[in-house]
Design a protein around this nucleic acid. Structure first.
Lengths: 109, 109
DNA sequence: GATTTGCGTAAGTGTTTACTTACCTATATA
DNA sequence: TATATAGGTAAGTAAACACTTACGCAAATC
């Protein structure tokens, strides 16, 4: 069972959980309130996020508050940003511009 | 069947394919040469990358050259970078420092 | 024209995923 | 002490995933 950050953020529900927790640390029920799916389903998503290190738990009585460990996202950032020069360089812009022209000139393709 | 960029890059083989293609546009067999798995397996991975817009094909005779459309990675970059302030601010650094100290002080946990 | 090469795709398979309901335990509250 | 609340976890299930082998077809080469 692979359990890495890339896998973890592949699921839209888990990305949304991270979004919620970015604003504010929440306990499990508070997270679940934001979704239509069952509480155990959310519990399982949170478990995956914990296992890959994206979330840490702070226990307070019977409540368990989740907070995001954003440093873990660096892994993804590093991988993606190594290509950033490709998508914002001049050549790339030229390419888009040309294929755009082409579309206008021969639209039947 | 979800077919978005996050899903596409969740698989390590597909990330590796993108890595290879970043250096040089390759045809399918050339890509497959870099992996132990079968050619059809690679063909299927490439298909997924095409379907989510990360790869475009340039046909040349019977060969099909793959090239990465890096702009598609912007989607990932945008999502991740919205949190970059969290992982490189002072408070965060302090937190890491403190938990580091804690580990050294009570190592039996 | 026959054969090789490049590559897509179908069918089959074992594994993983994303849920569900049911149940359990620990903490808090009346 | 009884009960409500927070939340973990097991079992079941349908769908998706990551492969494989087998096959087919079109372009290139002999």
């Amino acid at each position: 069972m692979r359990r890495d950050v890339f896998q973890a953020i592949a699921d839209p529900t888990r990305r949304e959980i991270i979004n919620l927790l970015a604003a504010k640390s929440l306990n499990l029920n508070a997270i679940a309130d934001n979704f239509k799916m069952s509480r155990p389903a959310i519990s399982q998503h949170v478990k995956i996020l914990i296992e890959c290190g994206l979330i840490k738990i702070k226990k307070n009585g019977r409540e368990r508050f989740c907070e995001v460990k954003f440093q873990k996202l660096k892994e993804v950032s590093k991988w993606v940003e190594q290509y950033s020069s490709f998508w914002n360089n001049k050549l790339d812009a030229l390419e888009i511009y040309l294929s755009d022209i082409k579309t206008k000139v021969e639209p039947k393709k």
